[in-house]
Amino acid sequence: MNVSLSMLLLIAACAAVTILPRVLPFLIIRNLKLPMLALRWLSYIPICILTALVVSNVLGENGPLSFDWQVIAIMIPTILFALWTKSLLFTVIIGVVLMAALRFFIG
């Protein structure tokens, strides 16, 4: 259980470059009245970024046009379940259970 100085400095540097983009917008926008257009643009960010994150989980790791078919197969019932229950907690649980079941039966 020890931390070398070089590792400590590396972790500190990584912390700095992670914290900067997280904190800067809060500090800048605090002293700034954003124009309507900017606010409208920002209102699209949640849906765009969540979609992009879902797609990045579907795209396989073997280069372009490779897909994780297990994820795609379980995604569909998970989307339907989310639409039906509108519950974050139940959707997460059902997604995990379905994925575990799929791997149990095909693996």
Binding site: L53, T91, L102
Partner: peptide, 23 residues
Amino acid sequence: PEAFGLDFALTSMFIALLVLQLD
């Protein structure tokens, strides 16, 4: 943990958050 499907927790969470946004 992959055997228990736990790695899918994150994906299903993003899916649910997206559906709730659209709703």
